[in-house]
């Protein structure tokens, strides 16, 4: 019985982490899948969101800025705003860069943000980190059932972001964006303000990345620079989106869940290797993850759920007179 409930709570934990990654993937899908913006600095906006929400919701302490004790939802909104504003400032400077140059610039910016977090200890307590970050409804739940509440909270936000992202994708705004992504010159010729569209896309994506960061901080209950590892944020999210299907919101969620499950479950297998392999099993696991990712990426080149453009609706088509020849 304990084994079954244990497996159940493990599944819950995979779904919580998978949900946070799904948010990051949806955000990246807005930037890359819809707007064609190569953001390789996801971890920077993730970290801003995480620290913003942590600072806004923790009790007062002498170690870092804080003492606001706002409700967690306010923390999430704060995270979205600060990450979005930072995204706007970054976009003002580098959104005009062509895709690969934007990638380089955004890696650099993520590193700058990380160094600011490590060094400005009046703000973030530097390398010692922020502790005592509350969970939503934490005062009513304790122990392992608290994870269930948090799971529902995370997936509610995933649902909201998914609906927003789908609405954006199907809207005229989304169509213009895809036109810019596929052919910038002709979109500009059709009168679209390319730079403004790209800035908007970048800001919206960054705000959602900030929300994902904030949820991570509340999940871990403790935030230090060890949560801002680019391998586990930026690069893993890129792999998830590529595997899931860039340009497809459902694909982004499927990719996040699938790849995170792959990442997590492999350890259960490598732990069963004979004891003389014990010191190597963690490295074998990394190799295994790499191989499986190669397989997924080779097998599904356009992703598991490839992009499918929405059908065009001309509501007044019937009434409109046939075009004259």
């Amino acid at each position: 019985m304990t084994e079954l409930s244990g497996l159940f709570f493990y599944l819950v934990s995979v779904l919580i982490a998978g949900g946070i990654y799904a948010l990051l993937c949806l955000a990246l899908n807005i930037q890359w899948g819809m707007g064609g913006l190569f953001n390789a600095g996801i971890v920077g906006f993730f970290a801003i969101g995480a620290y913003t929400s942590a600072i806004l919701t923790t009790p007062e302490t002498a170690k870092h800025l804080g003492g606001f004790e706002l409700p967690i939802f306010a923390g999430l909104i704060g995270a979205a705003i600060i990450a979005g504003v930072t995204g706007w400032a970054v976009a003002r400077i580098c959104v005009r860069l062509k895709s690969d140059y934007l990638a380089m610039a955004s890696i650099g910016i993520a590193e700058i943000l990380r160094l600011v977090i490590v060094n400005e200890s009046w703000l973030t307590n530097g390398s010692l980190g922020i502790s005592g970050i509350p969970r939503p409804f934490g005062e009513y739940t304790a122990g392992r059932p608290a994870d269930l509440v948090f799971l529902a909270y995370v997936w509610l936000i995933v649902l909201i972001v998914y609906l927003v992202a789908t609405r954006l994708y199907n809207s005229p705004w989304g169509r213009s964006l895809r036109a810019i992504r596929d052919n910038e010159a002709s979109a500009a010729a059709a009168g679209k303000n390319v730079e403004r569209f790209r800035t908007q896309t970048f800001v919206i994506g960054c705000a959602f990345m900030g929300v994902a960061g904030a949820l991570s901080a509340h999940y871990f209950r403790f935030l230090s620079p060890s949560a801002t590892d680019p391998l586990l944020v930026t690069f893993l999210v890129w792999v998830m989106l590529m595997a899931g299907g860039s340009g497809n919101n459902r694909g982004a969620i499927v990719g996040a869940l699938g790849i995170w499950a792959l990442w997590s479950v492999t350890e259960i297998f490598t732990n069963r290797l004979p004891p003389e392999w014990a010191t190597r099993s963690s490295f074998i696991r990394m190799l295994l993850v790499g191989l499986l990712l190669q397989y997924v990426l080779q097998k599904f080149r356009a992703g598991i759920l490839p992009e499918k453009s929405p059908p065009l609706h001309f509501e007044d088509e019937a009434e409109r007179p046939a075009p004259e020849k």
């Binding site: 934990s13 997590s264 259960i268």
Partner: peptide
């Protein structure tokens, strides 16, 4: 894996699986 994400994930497996 030296990161908070990996630590929580590995800990979940030790505790639950």
């Amino acid at each position: 894996t030296g990161s908070a994400q990996g630590a929580v994930d590995a800990a979940q497996k030790l505790a639950n699986v």
